[in-house]
Design a protein around this nucleic acid. Structure first.
Length: 175
DNA sequence: CGCGGCGTCGATC
DNA sequence: GATCGACGCCGCG
């Protein structure tokens, strides 16, 4: 009962965080600075620490929606979605690679997302599609945030407020 | 031409 | 809803 009351504060904070932050990491960047096709994963999923990180308090759709919603343009490429989720939720820094498939699967499957392919391949080599939230997606996101438990709210808020590394030396020249 | 990332689909739990 | 497998397509080396 009192959790409801205390949640109000947190939810307010969540809204501030979710709908105000402008994460430069997920903004589009010029093609020159783009990494080449080289994969950044280091294949050390095997020797990760036995204590793995807890799952995020929300499902994949919400995770993606969070990423999309925090970008300047409201749209991101898959790689940027990966980055956002990896940086905000440590679970995915140690999780096996399957999660990327799940992300892509949700992007295609869920009616929360739509893609906009810009085929301006003049200067650009070939940009992959930009994904954005549909009206339904926005509704689902707001609805989810509204109905989060106090504990989950706190947890989410913390994740959104402190993007960054968890692994002591995970960050490698990456940009 | 081969490999890997992406977008889809389908099946299964 | 989460995971996994499989395809076709496309860029890149």
């Amino acid at each position: 009962m009192n959790t409801k009351f205390s949640s109000l504060c947190t939810i307010d904070c969540l809204y501030k965080v979710f709908f105000k932050i402008k994460d430069e990491d997920v903004s589009r960047r010029p093609a020159k600075n783009r990494r080449k096709g080289r994969t950044t994963k280091v294949r050390d999923s095997k020797n990760l620490t036995p204590e793995s990180w807890p799952r995020p308090p929300v499902n994949y759709c919400i995770l993606i929606a969070l990423a999309l919603n925090s970008s300047h343009s409201g749209s991101l490429k898959v790689q940027q979605i990966y980055n956002f989720i990896r940086e905000h939720f440590p679970f995915f820094q140690t999780a096996p690679d399957g999660w990327k498939n799940t992300i892509r699967h949700n992007l295609c499957f869920s009616n929360s997302f739509r893609k906009t392919c810009n085929q301006l391949r003049r200067d650009e080599k070939r940009k992959s599609c930009f994904w954005h939230l549909t009206l339904d997606g926005q509704r689902r996101l707001h609805d989810e945030i509204r109905t989060l438990s106090g504990e989950s709210s706190k947890q989410l808020e913390r994740s959104m407020s402190h993007p960054g590394e968890v692994g002591e030396s995970k960050r490698v020249h990456h940009l």
